[in-house]
């Protein structure tokens, strides 16, 4: 039996191109006023850090993608990107 390991996962959710992003636009306008020049675009989004029990990275990717698609993002107006990192070593996990 394959034991589950814990994979850190980052889910980034952003608005689809074409969907108005008033937050990003406000930040974009604020930057030059604060002296930060040379920033051409700002798009605001959300980031979620999960720790997922999975047998391997592909399994973790599949689980997190399902979560992103069904809950974390609304595919009508948002897109998402799932990044899976290397599982923490069992020793590190048990010592914490």
């Amino acid at each position: 039996m394959i034991s589950a390991r814990q994979f850190p996962v980052l889910v980034e959710v952003g608005l689809r191109p074409g969907i108005a992003d008033p937050q990003g636009a406000t930040i974009e306008r604020a930057l030059p006023a604060l002296g930060f020049d040379g920033v051409r675009t700002v798009r605001a989004g959300k980031a979620f850090r999960l720790t997922v029990d999975a047998t391997d990275r592909d399994d973790a990717q599949a689980r997190a993608t399902d979560i992103a698609d069904r809950l974390l993002a609304n595919p009508v107006i948002e897109t998402y990107e799932v990044t899976v990192f290397e599982a923490e070593s069992p020793n590190a996990a048990s010592s914490s």
Partner: peptide, 17 residues
């Protein structure tokens, strides 16, 4: 109802925030 898929589309933040 939109989130549940019983109606199509979505409601985003008001123009002008």
């Amino acid at each position: 109802l939109c989130e549940a898929g019983l109606l199509p589309g979505a409601l985003q933040k008001n123009r002008g925030l």
